[in-house]
């Protein structure tokens, strides 16, 4: 594995912090302008949404308690919300107890999803979600 434990933890922590800052920025600016800044390269280039477009809006709906609306916007929002909730806590617990449970878990997941019998259904799910996103016109 190329990724060492500390590398993985710093990447994950930075990603979650960036996610929280982005979420805070979106929620605060959403109240005044009712419009979020779109950062997706694919959407800018092709005018079509990418598989994870709408996940920001989905997470915002989750924070407001509209769980069905969140699922309707983009189910990937739930995955991201789970990672954002669990990852920082797990990393801090690991760092304090000098453990590497999250790293081992990450490696297990990585070998797990490389197997075709899990990879192919997951790829299909992402593609179905993508088609759904395009039809919804996010």
């Amino acid at each position: 594995m190329a990724l060492s434990r500390n590398n993985l933890y710093s990447i994950l922590l930075a990603a979650s912090v960036a996610g929280y800052i982005w979420l805070y920025y979106c929620i605060t600016s959403n109240l005044s302008e009712n419009k979020t800044v779109e950062v997706c390269l694919i959407k800018h280039a092709t005018n079509l949404p990418c598989p994870s477009c709408g996940s920001t809006r989905s997470i915002i709906s989750i924070t407001k308690g509209n769980f069905i609306e969140a699922l309707d916007l983009n189910p990937i929002g739930y995955v991201i919300a789970l990672i954002m909730l669990i990852a920082p806590v797990w990393i801090i617990v690991d760092l304090i107890s000098r453990n590497n449970a999250l790293f081992l878990f990450f490696q297990k997941i990585e070998t797990f999803i490389k197997k075709p019998k899990y990879a192919i259904p997951l790829i299909l799910l992402v593609i179905i979600n993508w088609i759904w996103n395009i039809r919804k016109g996010l």
Binding site: L3, S55, I83
Partner: peptide
């Protein structure tokens, strides 16, 4: 790097 790939996929790159 499947783990990083998932990270990229979920966050629009």
């Amino acid at each position: 790097d499947s783990g990083l790939g998932i990270g990229k996929l979920l966050t629009c790159g």
